[in-house]
């Protein structure tokens, strides 16, 4: 049952990811990307990470993609003609083939049952996924968390300086 659902969602996500690059109209491409994000959220739910699923939809589908569509809307990008970058296509084929080999090697090398650690599916069920993430983020991974927030602060200040010449 779960495997069937996985293959179904995986199929949808791969097809929509394909159409992200295939669509001529940028708005349709953006919508396909949203579909891919929603499929990723379903994967997070299947991996017993409901918090990540909700954040995936909230941040990627809800905020970032809306901003991308906003930019498309403001710049008024129309449909683009057929691209002539054949060497680009060839490069993409080679690159995706190589990454497929890497992915296949990883898949062949490990199974889910080999995963070790304190946090199992039962722990997540009893303790709550959000609590686990929160606790880990503010104790074990406090330094990366703070560094990320400083990085974001720098980005915000940079955006303000770029958009406002006279402060």
């Amino acid at each position: 049952m779960e495997a069937m659902l996985f293959y179904l969602v995986a199929l949808v996500s791969v097809i929509s990811a394909f159409f992200v690059t295939k669509c001529r109209n940028p708005i349709n491409s953006a919508l396909c990307l949203v579909t891919t994000f929603l499929c990723l959220a379903v994967f997070y739910v299947m991996l017993q990470a409901p918090f990540m699923a909700a954040i995936q939809i909230m941040v990627y589908a809800g905020a970032i993609m809306v901003l991308i569509i906003f930019v498309i809307m403001l710049l008024n990008i129309g449909s683009v003609g057929k691209s002539r970058y054949t060497h680009g296509v060839a490069g993409a084929i080679v690159l995706s083939f190589l990454s497929f080999i890497v992915a296949a090697k990883f898949i062949a090398g490990g199974t889910v049952s080999k995963a070790v650690g304190d946090i199992s599916a039962e722990v997540v069920q009893s303790y709550g996924h959000t609590e686990l993430i929160g606790k880990a983020m503010f104790t074990e991974f406090l330094l990366p968390f703070e560094i990320a927030s400083i990085l974001l602060l720098v980005a915000i200040v940079g955006a303000v300086i770029l958009s406002k010449r006279k402060v």
Binding site: F51, A53, A54, M58, A61, G62, V66, H129, T130
Partner: peptide, 12 residues
């Protein structure tokens, strides 16, 4: 168990 976040996500 992430009900509130689900609602915020749907609002988004």
């Amino acid at each position: 168990n992430v009900g509130v976040l689900y609602i915020l996500a749907m609002a988004g």
